[in-house]
Amino acid sequence: MKIKKKEIASEIFTGSMADISFLLIIYFMITSAFSATRGLDFALPEETDTPEIKQEDSIEVHVMPGGAIEVDKKGLPLDGLLPYVLERLQQNPEKPVILRTDPEATYGDMITVFDRLRRANEEWVDADGNAKYTDVNGNPLTEIKTISIPTQREIENIWNLLGMG
C-alpha cells in the first residue's frame, strides 16, 4: 500500500511586506529634507599673494544699513552699480572691487550687492559667449577680476598701519 506523502508548501510570507515597505517610505520621506545645496562661491586670498591695494586704485562699494549703496563715496542705485564698475574697469581692468558692509546692515543686504557684482560674468557676455565690451587696450572685458570683502578687523588693521586708528 502506498502512503501519500503530504506536501509541505514552502512559501515566504509576504503579507507584511507592504507594511514594512510603507514604513520605510514614510521614514525616508520625513528624514530627507530638501536642503539647499547651492550658493555663492567665494575664494579667500592667500596671505602670501595678497597684493597691496591702494585705495585710489580700487572701486570701493559700501553697503549701508537698509541696502543702499555708495560707490566711491557717491550714492548709486543698485542697477547703476555694474555700469559704473564697467566704465571704471574699461580704463583699468586690473582694478579690484572692495565690498565693505556696514556692521549695522544685514547679511542679506551684502549678499544682494555681492550677487550683483558676480553677475558681471553674465551681463558682459553675449549669448555666444563673446565679450560685449573691451578695455582701453582692446582686450575683452568679461568679469571683475578681484572682488575683495575685507573684514572689520582687517580694515582697522589698515587704518592702524596708516596711523589713522
Binding site: R38, G39, L40, D41, F42, A43, L44, E46, E47, D115
Partner: peptide, 11 residues
C-alpha cells in the same frame, strides 16, 4: 587660512 567659502542661498 580657509581658502574656499560657499555662501548658501536660495534662487
Amino acid at each position: 587660512k580657509v581658502k574656499y567659502i560657499f555662501l548658501l542661498s536660495e534662487q
